[in-house]
């Protein structure tokens, strides 16, 4: 990466050289400045995670003695095997694999649930003239105003009364109670040309058939975009899973972070390596999704306005 950047600079400088030398020189230095700022930014974002990963390949004693590690060590296999398949020492029985599975259930369950429910609601709002439509609209969109954190205690009590503590349903459903998805699909459905519906009606398609056979396939890109945002959002949930799951069988990776901290306070030589390995494990899937589906991710983020 470094090499390409510097050779780019040379190319630029040479290309500019054919014009006036003063201008090309000034341009060269400005370009150097731009790239330096960007590299500092990259370093700022990258360094902590890189350090966390490198540290996770060392054993606890080394880290405790010498501090965080700037070079790879020889405990990679050991540490990650212990974290993935063993009860991690931070938790009694939840292995990294179990927590990864739970995180997947939460991330995918939340994203799919939210997309299905909000597409249906948006369809009903945009394509039908029903009494109380305005009321329904406001009932749904007021939820955009208040995040879960401000009503956390009563939400917990309701889920508890419904007997949903330590269950995937209790984990996912309350998180879906916000209108971001509905808002997003409403905007999109409004931009779908009316002619499409006219044509479908002439062909004899009913409202259900129109939704399933035409509107849903048309929204594919939108669905992908919003899925990525919602998956990352669901996977990264912390406060709600912390309250709802006391049974380790339901711990997610992100929830497991709390356990790490609790064990640390009181440990002689904390398992720094394993803790960092868990952190890496917890960030890997969402990062992969965001980087691989970059185009959709940016679309989903900037168009949904969160």
């Amino acid at each position: 990466m470094m090499e390409t950047t510097s050779s780019n600079l040379e190319v630029e400088a040479r290309a500019g050289g054919r014009r006036t030398p003063l201008l090309s020189q000034r341009r060269f230095w400005r370009s150097v400045g731009d790239h330096t700022v960007l590299w500092l930014g990259v370093l700022f974002m990258l360094a902590p995670v890189l350090l966390a990963f490198l540290t996770s390949t060392h054993d606890a004693v080394t880290i405790h003695r010498d501090g965080l590690q700037f070079l790879p060590g020889d405990h990679f296999g050991e540490t990650y095997e212990a974290v993935l398949f063993g009860a991690t020492g931070f938790t009694g029985k939840a292995t990294g694999l179990v927590m990864t599975f739970n995180s997947m259930v939460l991330g995918i369950g939340f994203a799919v649930g939210k997309i299905v429910i909000s597409m249906m609601a948006a369809y009903a709002i945009v394509y039908f003239r029903i009494p109380f439509a305005t009321l329904a609209f406001w009932v749904i969109f007021t939820t955009l105003l208040l995040p879960l954190e401000v009503r956390i205690l009563p939400s917990y009590e309701i889920v508890q009364k419904m007997g949903l503590l330590n269950s995937y349903t209790g984990l996912i459903l309350p998180l879906i109670a916000s209108a971001t998805g509905t808002f997003f699909f409403r905007q999109f459905f409004k931009s779908v040309p009316d002619e499409l519906l006219e044509a479908a009606r002439i062909d004899g398609a009913g409202p259900f058939k129109f939704f399933v056979d035409i509107l849903v396939p048309m929204s594919k890109t939108m669905i992908a975009a919003i899925f990525i945002i919602m998956f990352v959002f669901g996977w990264n949930q912390y406060l709600w899973p912390t309250l709802i799951t006391t049974d380790e069988g339901y711990y997610t990776l992100v929830r497991g972070i709390k356990q790490i901290i609790q064990v640390w306070v009181g440990a002689n030589i904390p398992e720094y390596g394993q803790a960092m390995a868990l952190a890496i494990l917890a960030m890997l899937p969402p990062i992969l999704v965001v980087v691989v589906f970059q185009r959709w991710f940016i679309k989903g983020l900037t168009e949904s306005d969160k």
Partner: peptide
């Protein structure tokens, strides 16, 4: 910047995917 804009974009945006508590732990 003329070159490498896309690489910079990826390198600068991926931290979005990291959960706040994980960032806190690191």
């Amino acid at each position: 910047v003329l070159r490498g804009a896309k690489s910079y974009r990826i390198l600068l945006m991926w931290v979005y995917a990291i959960a706040p508590p994980v960032a806190g732990l690191i």
